[in-house]
Design a protein around this nucleic acid. Structure first.
Lengths: 160, 160
DNA sequence: CTAAGTAAGTCCAAATTACGGACTTGCAAT
DNA sequence: ATTGCAAGTCCGTAATTTGGACTTACTTAG
């Protein structure tokens, strides 16, 4: 199977990965959350080739994760901003950052620190259950395929 | 800059992305959390080429995310298991799944449901602050570069 | 004893994607 | 008139990915 058909799989991770599963895309999104908006700025920070950057921005736009808006008429200049859908990737980037901080920091610690304005402390993140609010642990999770229904195809890639 | 140099950047997302930023890798890890362990099984479920699968498994092993262990002597057979470091990717895959369930489900809903054994409900995830336990919202986060110290290089890719 | 099967890969040629650098467009400022 | 800037496009070379065939080392069925 080819990379671009991955999005048609019956699996939310596969579908998400089809858009986000690229090192530049993830780093680009991280930069978006740090306030980067312009082509030149992305290019300089990521040091990615301009062609690749263009294609990734286009893909994120097609998926409604970024919108391009014109911030200057003459000469025409554009910026990229996160949509609501894009902003909802914050948990993904945050948990990735937390993991990276833990396993790939150098001796000086994480390069970027984040402060929670509400409590005033520098934080890392953990995940919680939407239903009971308790911290979510791997051992407490039980996965299953959705119940089969004649109108929809059965799920192929279920848990073992 | 080339893909394999991304891990040297001073940015935890870039460093993490250098390992995980690939559609197959993310989907493969998702399968690990569903209990998949064998080469043939990964190959059949992901429908990825065998060469690519081999290279991804090797990369994850080099990074200490998976370990290969022999489960049969004659003939020699192996399985891949998540290490502690690998298991700590659970929040990343979970938040990615939650986002994918929201934006890429078909009419029959998410293909795979997850139940929280502690409370008995099917759940989605949200992230919380490690310091105060409150749900973490984008607008309450303030990013900054780590304080400069003569012994370590200044951070390049800081917030805007 | 032979043939078929299985798990975990390796090998290969063709197709796709990425790379860096030069170039383009449209305008402003010196 | 030239230089500078932002946001790209173009292009030839280099690297990666793909799908399928093949390998190795055993087991099981006939």
């Amino acid at each position: 199977m080819k990379r671009d058909q991955l999005g048609n799989q019956q699996c939310s991770v596969a579908r998400s990965s089809a858009v986000l599963g690229d090192p530049w895309t993830l780093t680009l999104l991280s930069d978006c959350f740090l306030g980067v908006r312009r082509f030149e700025e992305f290019q300089e920070r990521l040091k990615v080739s301009r062609t690749t950057l263009t294609s990734r921005l286009k893909l994120l736009e097609e998926h409604g994760i970024l919108v391009q808006s014109q911030y200057e008429q003459k000469p025409p200049r554009f910026e990229y901003r996160l949509t609501q859908k894009g902003k909802e990737l914050f948990p993904v980037i945050s948990t990735l950052l937390t993991w990276g901080d833990k396993y790939y920091s150098d001796q000086a610690g994480p390069p970027i620190l984040r402060r929670h304005k509400k409590c005033g402390h520098d934080f890392q993140t953990y995940i919680a259950c939407s239903e009971c609010g308790e911290p979510l642990e791997l051992k407490d999770v039980e996965a299953r395929k959705r119940p089969h229904n004649d109108s929809y195809p059965a799920v192929e890639r279920g848990p073992m």
